[in-house]
Design a binder for these strands. Structure first.
Length: 496
RNA sequence: GGGAAAGUAGCUCAGUAGGUAGAGCACCGCCCUUUUAAGGCGAUGGUCGACGGUUCGAGUCCGUCCUCUCUCACCA
């Protein structure tokens, strides 16, 4: 680190030298009129036969310098890309050429000039004015490039995640990836807005948590002298809004689960949850297909995407398969003909485990997760989960052992989860109460939410509800295999 | 939590039998007015992730720990 200190000190001394030249190394603004990509894309409008020129003013960060005595080429990076500058002493004068010579990679400059092609045909701004806009003092990682091939890329993932500002500057495609993430979320919102869903914001700090099976984060409010939880789902509040008559409602926001971290799990992650009155889980399937297919089509103009070396087709309709039929198809097991003990043996044999006391429905779900999930590559709605898997869903009227629920699987992992929402207040009170009693044995069971149950007692219309993991959707649509690559600032342990 | 791999200069990486720590780029000095991984000459720069051990001697061998990556487990 001492060496880095030396490098930084050298640059701090340059700041003093620049001030002694009568130049402010940190001026207040700069009127940009042009951007790199626009100049390159519309060369003809900036240069007519090398005789008529439309002057440009561009600004950006110095990414490389090739200095040759009394003239230099350098490349700057602005919000639209890179462009080369030709900096000649005779064009900008001795004083500003002296300034240019002590500038570093990482400094931000503004330049004025005319656009020409060099001998080898690269569109270049031949500058006649140089303004230092910000002096850098901390060296950037140096990334080299030739013919589109990148050398010495900023590879270290830890450094990239911890220093996303550097990653955005020097790693190709990172900025574009996060722009795409934002675009995906905007498309999803637009689709929902057009359908008449109201976007809302509900509390993240809660006195009581629920809506999912997950460990919560806790925090503390000093004035109220009380423990608060960070939400693990948005469901309990959106359902209150459904009761309140906002009959199509959604929120896209952070949820927090105090659980393990891996390639597809970050402690804080972004969920879409939506609720639609007078709809059921079939309507939610249609809507889910639409959200994924239309977003993909708008991004890429097609419905096939490459992911993890596989081609995945998001073209609707997708397959709809009952959980027990999926188990029969992929594991060749006829669940309904088997005894509890036989289910236990299957789970044991495949290395699964059951929480607390044996519950047949949870065992079936476990077998599905152990034996089927990984095979579900193309989009498929797995429906009719056993009723014990959640207390918030209506049972199917054809077979009350199973739910009107689906989970969407793509490439072996879950992307969405939806119910025909339970709105029977007597049933709801009982199941939530029963679950709260299980809390001793099952740390992920939620405590009783009295206010939520009272809302349901007020009368919630028949409602379809849908939850989509936005980060995973972004991963799918960008081809990224790690959630950390679609989060600007993934959760990291502090550096020592 | 298990397994595997990794951590050496600001960045990207070498470092072979345990014997004074290397390269490219960046940075510093000099030359250079069409370069583009610019080039040439020269110089600086390191607690080899941390701590302990073995040894005359450890980047290298052993142990513990830290961080990250991959993977398995866990996970609505």
């Amino acid at each position: 680190m001492e060496d880095l200190g030396k490098l930084i000190n050298t640059r701090i001394e340059k700041i003093n030298a620049i001030r002694e030249m009568g130049i402010n190394p940190f001026p207040y603004n700069y009127a940009i009129t042009d951007f790199s990509a626009d100049i390159k894309d519309n060369f003809d409008s900036y240069n007519k036969d090398n005789e008529e020129f439309k002057p440009v003013t561009v600004a950006g960060r110095i990414m490389s310098v090739r200095l040759m005595g009394k003239a230099a080429f350098c490349t700057i990076h602005d919000k639209k890309g890179n462009i080369q500058l030709y900096v000649a002493q005779k064009n900008i004068g001795d004083k500003y050429y002296d300034l240019f010579k002590i500038l570093d990679i990482g400094d931000i400059i503004g330049v004025k000039g005319i656009v020409k092609k060099t001998q080898v045909g690269e569109i270049t701004v031949y500058i006649d004015s140089l303004t230092l806009l910000t002096k850098n003092i901390r060296p950037l990682p140096i990334v080299k490039e030739k013919d589109g091939e990148v050398y010495d890329a900023f590879h270290d993932k830890e450094l990239r995640y911890r220093n996303r500002h550097l990653d955005l500057i020097v790693t190709h495609g990172v900025k574009e990836l996060f722009e795409k993430r934002t675009r995906i979320i905007k498309i999803v919102k637009r689709i929902l807005d057009i359908k008449g869903f109201l976007e809302v914001e509900t509390p993240i700090l809660l006195p009581i948590y629920g809506g999912a099976n997950a460990g919560p984060f806790t925090t503390y409010h000093n004035t109220l002298d009380m423990l608060l939880y960070l939400r693990i789902s948005i469901e309990p509040y959106l359902k209150r809004l459904i009761v309140g008559g906002i009959d199509r409602v959604y929120e896209i926001g952070k949820c927090f689960r105090n659980e393990g971290m891996d390639r597809t799990h970050n402690p804080e992650f972004t969920m879409l949850e939506l609720y639609q009155s007078y709809a059921d889980y079939n309507d939610m399937m249609d809507l889910t297909e639409e959200l994924f297919e239309d977003t993909c089509k708008e991004l890429y103009g097609k419905t096939e995407i490459e992911f993890d070396g596989k081609t995945i087709s998001l073209k609707r309709p997708w397959r709809r398969l009952k959980m027990i039929d999926a188990i029969r198809e992929y594991a060749d097991i006829d669940i309904e003909s088997l005894s509890d003990d036989e289910l236990k043996n299957i789970i044991k044999k495949h290395g699964g485990e059951l929480k607390s006391a044996f519950v047949r429905g949870l065992a079936i779900n476990e077998i599905f997760e152990l034996l089927v999930e990984q095979h579900l590559i193309q989009p498929v709605f797995i429906t009719h989960q056993p009723l014990e898997t959640t207390p918030l869903c209506k049972v199917d009227y054809e077979d009350e052992r199973y739910l009107q629920r689906f989970e969407l699987f793509i490439n072996g992992s879950e992307f969405a989860n939806a119910y025909s929402e339970s709105n029977d207040p007597v049933f709801q009170r009982k199941t939530l109460y029963d679950q709260s009693l299980r809390k001793e044995a099952d740390t992920e069971a939620s405590p009783m939410d009295e206010n939520f149950v009272q809302a349901i007692e007020t009368g919630m219309p028949p409602t379809g509800g849908l939850g989509v993991g936005i980060d995973r959707m972004v991963m799918l649509l960008t081809g990224e295999r790690s959630i950390r690559d679609v989060l600007l600032f993934p959760t990291m342990k502090p550096e020592k």
